[in-house]
Design a binder for these strands. Structure first.
Lengths: 250, 250
DNA sequence: GCGTCTTTATTGTATAGACAATTAGCCGCT
DNA sequence: AGCGGCTAATTGTCTATACAATAAAGACGC
């Protein structure tokens, strides 16, 4: 990789601290500075941009508050591991959430195939009807009870490797978490009565209430992946807590 | 009211900017500085605390980012109107959400009574079994279709006025938004099959999947109110979008 | 090699001062 | 009374500097 100094420039639009923030954000978003990458020190950045340290500090602090960067005294500043989505609406990555509660996690892949997007999926993923997507269906279990039926569509235009990926051992959630740089996400929650097929997969009675969480994950304007996660309503709840953000020491 | 200088002091714990932030936060939380109140200017605060302006600025900026304070050049800094909870998980205050979509909003109060908390409610509200709470049940409609059945419990120890409040015209959501100072909130979402009674109230078939949102609203450690909001699953969804917070100009 | 001390790079916080941008409120004019 | 322009209060940003806290890396002794 060429020296970062050659790539990172300001756009002269808005406050300088925000220009710097966005410049660094871009490096992270493109994956150029991957998770774990050590950022230049404040001093180096000041030097490069020709600003005071407080200005660079403010940019880095904003990125830290957004969870994109982790900072440690003496060691430096690093691109954070992209686990942020899980933090907002809990019970997102089953593979990590279930062991945390002391239950035995199980995973089974039902199918993974490259297909043209049907109308509904194309609309939700902002793709043209018929665009190629990877369609994965799998089950997550806790102590042998099914807690989530996952249906997943991956945009092959953005992530062509997904067509070759092996989802037999690892769920698409974890795979994507490793592969894709930071993004935005959007959740939609609804409740449905289980169809016969779904009831069978989940191990519940037909007609039982199920909680459906659909998550679209973005890279800028593009949808990387669409996940439809269906849970038996009585066996699972989701929760989140918010308020004035936590400040200072954790 | 006595001069603010008599009330607001630092606790000497942690960074100064955070002490200042918390000191101001306390004024807001207690309702001492109510929504719309004009805060002292940065210069006054510097003077009072004996710090540099940047330090006070950082405290106020943090409060602004948390949505607790609104700042305007030349005019000053003001305590924000407490509309923040609605922003996080949308479809929260039906009375404002429904007209926003061009539908006709309707509200009907079914009952409002002062009762001792049963075991389940007491546990969720962190109260002693039998503590007095105001229990309100009501319906929200959009173009005459029921979109939400609201069951609400209000902690009378914290809000004794709730026993006398008239919930026939205004829903408890709006009333509380006006009455109670800023807090944290916690959501729990699940899906249930409608019981006969609930199905009747919502105007759906018995057994239909319903989305249940339970929200606990806190004042520090105390639960102010518990809301159980039940929606017909097929008629309603909730969504939220998140990612790197918006920065800079709106 | 293995512990212990020292050095030092890096971030975290705070200060004092400067200028820019915004705009509420006042003053004067008609 | 209404309008227009000026003034000044207030926030927004930036600089340059200083010292504190942390912990990695190196130096030293054994």
């Amino acid at each position: 990789m060429t020296d970062w100094r050659d790539q990172i420039t300001l756009d002269d639009d808005g406050p300088v601290y925000d220009q710097i923030r966005r410049a660094i954000l871009d490096q992270i978003r493109t994956g150029d500075w991957a998770p774990g990458y050590r950022l230049p020190s404040e001093a180096d950045l000041c030097d490069h941009f020709g600003t005071a340290r407080m200005t660079v500090n403010r940019a880095l602090r904003a990125l830290t508050e957004d969870g994109l960067v982790v900072r440690k005294r003496r060691a430096g500043s690093f691109v954070a591991q992209p686990d942020a989505p899980a933090a907002m609406l809990e019970i997102v990555d089953m593979a990590s959430a279930i062991p945390a509660r002391g239950q035995r996690y199980g995973y089974r892949c039902l199918a993974s195939e490259t297909v043209p997007a049907d109308e509904d999926v194309a609309r939700q993923m902002r793709l043209l009807h018929g665009a190629r997507v990877q369609h994965v269906r799998c089950l997550h279990t806790a102590d042998d009870a099914v807690v989530e039926y996952e249906e997943r569509w991956i945009n092959l235009a953005l992530l062509p490797e997904a067509a070759q990926a092996d989802f037999d051992k690892e769920g698409p959630g974890g795979w994507l978490l490793r592969k894709t740089p930071w993004t935005e996400a959007e959740h939609t929650i609804s409740a449905i009565n289980a169809s016969d097929g779904l009831a069978n997969a989940l191990g519940v009675a037909p007609g039982a209430a199920c909680l459906v969480l659909e998550r679209r994950t973005f890279q800028g304007e593009d949808v990387v992946t669409l996940a439809r996660l269906t849970h038996p309503g009585d066996r699972h709840v989701m929760s989140e807590r918010f308020g004035p953000r936590r400040h200072g020491r954790e």
